[in-house]
Amino acid sequence: MIMNPWPYPRWVAHRGAGKLAPENTLAAFKLGAAHGYRMFECDAKLSADGVPFLMHDARLDRTTSGRGIGGEQPWSALAQLDAGSWHSRSHAGEPLPTLENIARFCLANGYLLNIEIKPTPGVERETGEAVAREAARLWQGAAVPPLLTSFQVASLEGAHAVQPDLPCGLLLDKLWDGWLEAAKRLGCVAIVCNHALWDAATVALAHDAGMRALSYTVNDDWAAQRLIDLGTDGIITDRVDLFSPAG
């Protein structure tokens, strides 16, 4: 199958700047950009009152000054949290960003975004719908839309149902039965695998289906070179200080 032109670069900065700044914050995006990265990956979930915001974990405890389930709190409370002190004193007081905050930064600077839909358990489809609607609103008229990805099929179903023109990708931490058929049904343009899952046969399956082959989270030279040699199309990394995005 002939694949459509791919508008995204090979190298993608994981959660903004990997581990060099507090993940999923504007500070991380700025640091990743300072290392030359033009595309970023982030995690998006919903506050209790439906505001898409950036955070990986369901619980607030690891990466903020808050406690409990983030998705059970309104944005007015989440906006008051410190999302930087856990990482380093220099980032103390860094706030949680909304998806709109990050979109404005990316659009103003010509950066591209991979939004992983990371729902609080129990609201998978609703999160996919809300993130897709917000992405369509924020990137309306943009030359290159964000790439929406998720491990949760229900989230991708929700996103595809409300915004079928937004590109989406299926995230995989294992090759479960029916993964390729699910990706086709969802109209995915990409498969995003744990990098160890890719081999020549699996890359061929994705490419033959008209989808790109992307990998997470690649932090070693040997792993990156293996993926390049396999002909994969995108590498998500924490090591923005090691890999040149021009490579």
Results as ranks from 00 to 15, higher is better:
113 L>M: 13
21 A>S: 06
190 A>L: 03
12 V>C: 11
87 H>E: 01
167 P>H: 10
170 L>A: 06
183 A>S: 11
171 L>T: 04
199 D>G: 07
114 N>A: 07
236 I>G: 01
33 A>H: 12
211 M>H: 09
200 A>S: 15
153 V>D: 11
11 W>Y: 15
236 I>M: 06
241 D>F: 12
144 V>R: 10
122 G>W: 08
112 L>S: 08
199 D>R: 11
99 L>I: 03
82 D>V: 01
56 H>Q: 08
168 C>V: 08
123 V>P: 01
119 P>F: 05
241 D>Q: 13
78 L>K: 11
62 R>P: 02
177 D>K: 10
122 G>P: 06
45 K>G: 02
91 H>V: 07
167 P>W: 02
108 A>F: 05
175 L>Y: 09
156 L>T: 13
71 G>P: 01
226 R>E: 04
16 G>R: 03
35 H>W: 12
188 C>N: 11
182 A>T: 14
117 I>R: 07
186 L>Q: 11
55 M>T: 05
27 A>G: 07
115 I>Y: 05
192 V>A: 13
243 F>R: 09
31 L>P: 00
159 A>H: 04
128 G>Q: 06
232 T>K: 00
164 P>F: 13
151 F>A: 08
67 R>Y: 14
67 R>D: 13
132 A>H: 02
36 G>Q: 00
227 L>E: 00
192 V>W: 03
162 V>I: 07
236 I>F: 01
28 A>K: 08
77 A>E: 15
79 A>C: 05
52 P>D: 10
208 D>F: 08
137 R>Y: 10
130 A>K: 05
207 H>Y: 10
2 I>Q: 15
247 G>A: 15
65 S>A: 11
121 P>I: 05
141 G>Q: 09
31 L>M: 09
69 I>A: 06
224 A>K: 05
74 P>Q: 11
182 A>L: 09
196 A>V: 14
169 G>Y: 00
170 L>I: 00
137 R>D: 09
42 C>R: 01
127 T>L: 00
98 T>W: 12
130 A>C: 10
15 R>L: 03
172 L>G: 01
161 A>S: 14
111 Y>S: 09
190 A>F: 05
16 G>N: 10
206 A>V: 02
10 R>I: 07
21 A>K: 02
214 L>R: 07
13 A>Y: 09
67 R>P: 03
177 D>P: 04
11 W>V: 05
207 H>T: 03
58 A>Y: 04
197 L>G: 11
100 E>G: 09
145 P>K: 14
170 L>H: 05
141 G>K: 04
228 I>D: 14
95 P>E: 12
120 T>H: 02
83 A>Q: 04
73 Q>L: 15
164 P>R: 14
239 R>E: 03
29 F>N: 05
194 N>R: 14
118 K>S: 01
150 S>Y: 04
71 G>R: 04
20 L>S: 07
36 G>W: 01
50 G>F: 12
126 E>P: 03
156 L>I: 13
209 A>V: 02
94 E>M: 00
208 D>L: 05
